[in-house]
Nucleic acid binder design. Structure first.
Lengths: 358, 358
DNA sequence: TTGTACGCGTTATCAC
DNA sequence: GTGATAACGCGTACAA
């Protein structure tokens, strides 16, 4: 039977429930022999305490939660690993949860705070689209990490949430970094630079990186050509896919005979683009240069190796978790932390100067 | 304050707690106006019911859990998505949880069964190393999917768990499939086939696939050469990495001048191997052929495209979840389901016949 | 060192 | 339609 409770164990052992409880929780005030006997019975009957009851009873617990938005991003999972280790060293319990794309992570957070008496929360991924009210109701320190920053969005005169609630945020400056990537391409002599992006119609990292692309062009006095923009519009949740990169590069090459470079807002997209370029018979980087964004492992091994904006994964993870614990300890106020990313030049990009025919 | 309870809401609204409960849970027997008023107060105070208390009270709930072992395997996550949809159609709730590598998934399952009153469980990933006792204590139908099969392990006379507990299992026949891959290479004329594998000292898919490799050689009367085996021995949890594939291929090429093919027990490893081969100045597949195992998306886009054993991801997911619901409904007994995989020949493999010098 | 009794926050079962 | 009240399983004062 699966419904064994602590009472059953107590009855079987001929002791009180509190004694059984003490045995389970390694309390000091218990006769070693009694404990041994109880543990044996627990083993025999396969008794497992009901966590709901435990958490309900517990008034507080040293634990923090990692809420990852969007399944299966290897970049986040690497960060989670680092943060979990840190958490463990602080003798806190780490709770890792995925949040579906159509779920509101702040609601999940609120429920978890109540249920597990969290001390703090780290939000990973997704875009910032929360109301000041919902944020205020979280009730424990929290921090956003690698979440699309709201600051540079085109907000139609809507007041910034940041001005109403002080929330903590650790991120790379998406706009500035993608600007950096495109400036690099321009300096290499590229004059027809395509971009594969997504989410232009809403606050998103895609939008931010697109704005950086535009800014770089403007800065160098280059005209913006909508023809050079491929926007991924898949309905499905997963948009950062190789397939979309493949499709995007195909379309850009078809519509722009003079194209010599493509900036992709993610490495995975760039990998797909590379495949399409090669399949079209063009060479990388001789005919077309490709630059990605993220700095994932795959980009170091693909052929050719990918030039990319590398996000400082471990630094971000450490800064985030340190910040959270500082807030929990009352040693620091919520703040906006911008981390510097690095342009890593590898084999997928090169000069944009062409012998020129026309 | 974050400690608002249903009682507080009731008091504020001037109603009883049961009325509030009815409002929250969309019960029919409630005055629409009362409900509206209550919902407004709940909204205002940001009240969130405590899930621990809910689950504690609830005697049963139509929900099943997906326990994924090992963080971040895109293959599992694709399957989970399919199974979640199926679950939703059956009007069951799906609970997705990660299990750390050093955690026992069966223990986690037991706790979850108690806490959330599960109807069934799907275990994904990891190796089968459970005792009959622990399995029997789960108490609800469960099924292993893509879990290292125990059947072909070298068990040193230990009785098979399968003979003591009838557990359900859906998997690809790792041994037979990798045998298939190696037979293909032999038929292509390869006579010096390396293997990059892992976990030879313990029951694992690595061991199984290695056995398939050996069997293929034996079958074709080819001698087994330990020199052609590279075993990944990293301490860290992650062994299926590009880096390990890179290192493995380097070592194999160094130790075997006549090497013309490498079989890798996973696609990710194969991708790393490809990079090492190219870096060494060799051509794929002209000089060295590479075959992977899994059928991940990355293998369809890498350069060259990867020849691999493709596991039937969606078929496995569907078979698994269907089987679980059949068991829940009492319509089917636990059983062992072997799914057929497919050898997909792409660009990374070719003929092993060489002009021959020596 | 051990046992009894209460309460954690919620839902379900009753009466009203 | 609504409001008391008894569980759910556990931890913990407190008494013994």
């Amino acid at each position: 039977m699966s419904n064994t409770t602590i009472k059953d164990i107590a009855r079987i052992c001929g002791v009180g429930v509190s004694t059984v409880s003490r045995a389970i929780n390694n309390h000091p005030d218990i006769n070693p022999e009694t404990k041994k006997k109880i543990m044996a019975v627990i083993e025999e009957y396969g008794f497992v305490p009901n966590d709901s009851a435990r958490y309900l009873k517990r008034s507080e617990s040293d634990s923090i939660a990692f809420l990852v938005k969007g399944i299966s991003n290897p970049f986040f999972l690497g960060m989670v690993r680092i943060m979990e280790q840190f958490t463990q060293k602080k003798n806190y319990a780490a709770i890792l949860r995925h949040v579906d794309d159509d779920q509101d992570e702040v609601s999940v957070a609120q429920a978890l705070v109540k249920e597990r008496k969290l001390k703090g929360i780290v939000f990973l991924g997704g875009n910032f689209n929360h109301t000041p009210e919902s944020l205020q109701q979280i009730g424990v320190p929290y921090i956003f990490c690698t979440v699309g920053n709201e600051d540079e969005f085109q907000m139609e005169g809507r007041p910034r949430v940041r001005d109403q609630v002080r929330y903590a945020n650790v991120a790379v400056d998406d706009l500035a970094e993608s600007e950096k990537a495109v400036l690099y391409l321009i300096e290499q002599g590229h004059r027809h630079i395509g971009i594969i992006t997504e989410g232009l119609d809403k606050p998103s990292v895609g939008q931010l990186r697109f704005l950086g692309y535009q800014k770089a062009l403007r800065e160098r006095g280059m005209a913006f050509d909508p023809n050079l923009v491929y926007e991924i519009k898949t309905k499905s949740a997963e948009r950062y896919t190789r397939e979309n990169g493949y499709l995007g590069a195909q379309a850009l090459m078809r519509d722009n005979p003079g194209l010599t470079a493509i900036f992709c807002i993610s490495d995975v997209i760039a990998i797909g683009a590379i495949r399409a370029i090669i399949d079209s018979g063009r060479k990388i980087p001789e005919d077309v240069s490709v630059v990605g964004y993220d700095g994932i492992d795959e980009g170091k091994y693909c052929v050719p190796r990918l030039t990319t904006i590398e996000q400082p994964q471990s630094e971000m993870a450490e800064a985030t978790i340190q910040f959270l614990f500082d807030m929990i300890g009352g040693k620091r106020q919520p703040d906006n932390l911008l981390m510097p990313a690095k342009l890593v030049i590898r084999e997928s990009s090169g000069s944009g100067y062409r012998p020129e025919a026309g």
